Amino acid sequence: MSITFRKYTTEPLFTEDYIKVRNFLIRINLKELTNPHFTWARWEWMTTHGGLDRTAISQIGLWEENGEIVGLVIFDCSLGEGFLCVDEKHNTLKEEMIVYASKNLAKDGKFHADIGDSDREFQRIATKNGFRPTQNRGVIAAIDIDDNISYSLPQGYSIVSMAEGWDFHKYHECMWRSFNHEGEPPQTEGDINCRIEMLSSPTIIPELVLAVTSPDGKYVVHCGMWYRPGDDYAYVEPVATVPEYRMMTISLLNSNQVSKYKLTNN
């Protein structure tokens, strides 16, 4: 079958194209995590993110063979920076992909392509097409976890998961303050609906959406985790802590829940 190109749908959220991109990102990372900077989990988070430029999603480029995606050019929430993911069987697409990205995903005439340090071929192709290496890079921290987990919370603090009940007003306030916005968070219906949508992915595992509550009942830490049963990794996004609660043990507790869930579902 020949490879065909098309653009992503103009429709946001959980479309057929959304499923195709997700399946593609899972498939290319099955044997090993070859593209850690843009996994299926990051795609899930981005799809519902309040900062996603939905007017630009139709600029995402898709290369398909027999209806299955084999190449993906995608931006990171907004134009100007993005990722180029390709099935290793179709590396000949790389030049076409970098050219497309530079013309269609640029902002103010500039596009920053996130290309792995080990992909020398892609680096050479990018250089040939006018790109230059920089010191700017995404960093992924990998933390090994096992079943030897124990922790204690300060008196009056507790952990709540989305599976047990979730207060989106408290979640909104936690996110607002954790990302250093000034003043009180707006509490309009639109603001709360945006937060609800951010946690609406059909693949979300409610037990892995966590918050730490303070003695006065507020959410002061939030940690979202993305896990696909059968994988040997989980993706943590976001980690958000209200400023006055930073540098406390409670800011580190949520990562333990990933191991608990993973180990009981093997």
Rank of each mutant, 00 (worst) to 15 (best):
R42Q: 12
R42W: 15
W43V: 08
W43Q: 13
E44D: 15
W45H: 06
M46F: 01
T47M: 05
G51Q: 13
R54T: 10
S58K: 12
Q59C: 08
G61P: 04
G61F: 02
L62V: 11
W63N: 11
E64V: 12
N66Q: 10
N66K: 08
N66H: 07
G67P: 14
E68I: 04
I69W: 04
I69P: 01
I69E: 07
G71S: 10
V73F: 05
I74T: 12
F75D: 02
F75Q: 03
D76L: 02
C77E: 11
C77T: 15
S78D: 10
L79T: 10
G80A: 09
G80V: 02
F83S: 11
L84W: 00
L84G: 10
C85G: 02
D87P: 01
E88P: 02
K89F: 00
T92W: 15
L93R: 07
E95H: 06
E95S: 08
E96Q: 13
M97Q: 10
Y100A: 03
Y100D: 06
K103H: 15
K103C: 05
N104C: 07
N104V: 08
K107M: 09
G109S: 06
G109H: 02
K110T: 00
H112Y: 14
H112I: 08
A113E: 05
I115V: 11
I115W: 00
I115R: 09
S118P: 01
S118A: 12
R120N: 11
F122A: 02
F122I: 00
Q123D: 05
R124G: 06
R124T: 12
R124M: 09
I125Q: 03
I125E: 02
A126W: 00
T127K: 12
T127E: 15
K128S: 08
K128E: 12
N129Y: 06
F131P: 09
T134D: 11
Q135T: 14
Q135P: 00
G138D: 13
A141L: 13
A141Y: 11
A141W: 10
A142E: 15
A142P: 13
I143M: 06
N148R: 14
N148Y: 01
I149Y: 00
Y151Q: 14
L153N: 09
Q155P: 09
S158W: 00
I159Q: 12
I159V: 15
I159N: 14
V160A: 05
A163M: 01
